[in-house]
Every structure is written in structure tokens, then in C-alpha cells.
Design a protein around this nucleic acid. Structure first.
Lengths: 230, 230
DNA sequence: ATCATCCTGCCATAATCTGTCAGGACACCA
DNA sequence: TGGTGTCCTGACAGATTATGGCAGGATGAT
């Protein structure tokens, strides 16, 4: 196995373990000596991997992924830049910041002339319609989706009726003017979606909902979406 | 210099030359033997670089860029996915296809579990308002911008008046419902923008306009944009 | 046919990577 | 205090990989 493939593997193994792992274990899993492992860790850190090692504890990796060297065509790069600009402008909040960071990361490894070209890229995102409020809950919702956790919300529907529900959020839709959480609703025992700006209160829970979000998304996609009552 | 850095360099050198370059020249520029150059080319091709070598001619690289290994956080990856989906859905045409390709490229190098997670990513782009037509010219416009070429167009403004103009396109704005070409207009001798769907005829030219698009963009950005008459 | 080039195999040499060993340092615990 | 589990670094010999030189084949343009 080539060294670079091994480095990818190492990242993978670290990603699997949520707990700290000792260097010795990592070395055994990779079939290399501990000395080489230290060298590999140092190489990955030099490449930007967020690995921390604490004496007496072990290594742990901040959630993230390493992309191996990759070719993009001009069009593909432009598409990535335009998409990131849209997210940065229209999604806002931490996700928007993340889009900017991703772009900055890509720019920083490009040669100078390309970096300038990228900065001055000719594809711009117009202002568009103002997004209705409700960004405050967006991060919590994304986190709940990622961790497959239930949320307790208070919701006010389009005709002003309020309700309290426990929902299993599994997707987040970005529309021109609003964001919609797509969920399984325990109250209705069915799929329901909720505009983020109409959620008046949101409480995170630690309770994992009993189905996988990928499955829920798949089932939801197979439905007819024209009957979206809450 | 490490081998991986040298490979990046090689891509760079190839990118600079628009004409075919002989392996001997490349080897000299990199300070390596021609034998090693052949090995390097083979490595890059194996990594997906679109390099073609023809006996008697030399090497040439299809426009594109190589990204070295790169770490992204979870948020950054989600932002890239969401952005690409938006481009794919709302920009359409070759650019939308490029967004899909970029995503597929990223997915293909990710480990299996991550690929599934990416496919089933929980951030969706809603349908939004229909984009008015006018996509037909978009590729030609993007190409003209990239190559800094003049365009001859026939345009019909919002009140139905037609005109023929020669424009220097330097940016393309994506709004929720329309796309706008931002240009220097030879007729008005000033900055003007044109909705892509109102361009009734578009002729590409081979005439390079006499200023750099980055400079034009910079100057345009410093203007007050609330007086956009054509 | 000749030229300029791409391309591959082989092999000795050069460079790099790896494992072993020998420390040092730090945090935690008894 | 000392002991344990870990991270971390330096040095060096041996293993592995990369490189250059050479020989020879192939292809397309002129």
C-alpha cells in the first residue's frame, strides 16, 4: 500500500472512532510501527487535518474529511464557486460561513494566477428576494438532522393556529424565500413539513429517533408532495 | 522538492502552455530526466488529469485544475453539496451538468459510508420560482467572458424597444428568476447589464476586448448600482 | 524515409521511508 | 512520590521507492 493511500486510511480509521484512540492501536490497524504512525500523524496535521494528540489519552480527529488530489475542469470549478457563493449569500449563518471557508480553502491551494481568477470569478449571485426570518433555529435543526435526534417545537401554521409537536427532522429544504424542515411528526404520525420561520420555539433533545434519516428521506421522496398539510 | 509538489508544478506548467509542449522541455523545466517525466505524466493521468500526448507533437492539458489533498469540515462539505445542488437545479445547462460532475467526482473518492451520506444529504434545494427562458445563450456568454471576447447582440428592453449593440461581457449574475450579463456597452460607452432572456440574437466574435475582465469587474463594483438603465 | 516525439522495460544508483532503540515530557492515579 | 499510559523527537541502519541512463519500439507529420 502506498504511503498516500495509508494516510487516507488513517483519516478513515480516526473518523470511525469517536473516542480517542492510542497511537499503538492505530499503528497495529495500519500494520506499521508506532514511529511511522507518529510521522504519518505529523504529515496529516501539516496538510490541515485537525488531529489532536494528548499524552495519556490518544488521538482524536475533529469531524471532517480529506479529499485526495482531484482534477476539476474549468466548468466544474466555476460551478463550485457559484454554488458556494449562493450558499454564502442565501443560506447565511454557520452554513454560509462554511461555504466561504470551503472556498478560501480551495483558493489557498491554487496557484496565484488561478486564485485571482477565482476571486474575480465572473459568476455572481444576485440579491434575490429577501429570505424570511427563522435563521435562529437553522443550526440546531441541521445538527438534529445530522445526529438523528428528536426536536420538540411550537409551531404556528399559515392560518395562525399554534401547536406543540415532537418531530423527527431528516431534511432541510432551501427555497427562494424560506427554509422548510422535513420531518416525521409524532402528533400526526405522518410526514409533515414546517417552515423554519414559523417555528416559535425549538427545544433540542438527546433522544435519537428510531429510524434512519436516509430511509425516511427515501420514503418521503416516494410520496405525492402536493398534499402538504400540517 | 517532493514528488507530489512536482506533480502539481507539472500541471501548472502544462496549464500555462496553450500549445503542445515536448516532454523534453517539460523535463528540463522541472529539472528531472525525461524518463521520470513519462512516469509523472502517467501518474497524473491515473489521477484523472486530462493530459494527451501525441508522438511528434507533445503534451497538452485540457483546461482544468488539480487540487492537492485537502481537509473539509462537515459543514464545509455540506455547503459544497448544497451549493452544487443549487447550481445543478437553478443554473441548468452545461454549468448545471458541471456541478453534478463535480459532486460525482468528490463522491467517487470518498469512502463508501461517506458517499452514501453525501447522496442522502439532508439539504435540499426547493423548486423556487421558474427561471425565465434565455438559457440558450448562457454557454456562449460564459465562454465569451472567460475568453474576454466581444459579443454582438440584439436586445429588447423592458418597454419593448429593440437595439443592436456590441458588448464586452465580464460577469454573469444569477438572480432567482433571471440571469443578467454585466458588460461594457460600446453603444452607450458605459457599463450596462442585459437580461439573458431579452437577448434576441447573439453573435460570438473572435475580437478580444481591450481591457481585463477583472479590472472591469472591479470598476463596476465601485459604482452605485441603482441606476441601471440600458 | 526521416524526424520528432511518445512510450516501455531493465537495471544500477540515489533518495526516501521505515523500524528499532533511546530518550524526554506530560497527565493522571495511587 | 513513583508508576503507568501516552505523545513526541532524534539517530541510524536497513527496506523500499524513485530516478536516470540506456536500448528499443511505435506513431504521425513532412
Amino acid at each position: 500500500m502506498s504511503r498516500s493511500a495509508r494516510l487516507l486510511d488513517l483519516i478513515q480509521i480516526l473518523r470511525r472512532h469517536r473516542q480517542p484512540v492510542s497511537g499503538e492501536n492505530l499503528a497495529r490497524e495500519l500494520g506499521i510501527s508506532i514511529r511511522t504512525l507518529y510521522r504519518d500523524i505529523a504529515t496529516l496535521q501539516a496538510q490541515g487535518a485537525d488531529i489532536t494528540g494528548e499524552p495519556g489519552i490518544g488521538y482524536i480527529l475533529k469531524p471532517g474529511f480529506m479529499l485526495p488530489p482531484l482534477m476539476f475542469s474549468e466548468d466544474e470549478l466555476e460551478a463550485l464557486v457559484l454554488g458556494s457563493r449562493w450558499v454564502s449569500k442565501r443560506a447565511g449563518g454557520p452554513l454560509g460561513k462554511a461555504a466561504e471557508n470551503a472556498l478560501a480553502k480551495i483558493a489557498s491551494v491554487l496557484p496565484k494566477d488561478l486564485r485571482e481568477q477565482l476571486d474575480a470569478t465572473n459568476l455572481l449571485v444576485g440579491p434575490g428576494d429577501p429570505v424570511v426570518a427563522g435563521d435562529t433555529h437553522l443550526s440546531a435543526i441541521r445538527l438534529a438532522i445530522r445526529k438523528e435526534r428528536k426536536l420538540a417545537i411550537a409551531y404556528e401554521d399559515e392560518s395562525g393556529r399554534s401547536s406543540e409537536r415532537t418531530i423527527w427532522p431528516f431534511a432541510l429544504g432551501f427555497f427562494d424565500r424560506s427554509r422548510v424542515v422535513i420531518t416525521w411528526c409524532e402528533l400526526r404520525n405522518d410526514f409533515r413539513h414546517f417552515r423554519a420561520d414559523r417555528i416559535t420555539r425549538l427545544d433540542e433533545t438527546d433522544i435519537r429517533y428510531p429510524r434512519r434519516k436516509a430511509i425516511l428521506l427515501k420514503e418521503w421522496r416516494e410520496l405525492d408532495h402536493n398534499t402538504g398539510k400540517n
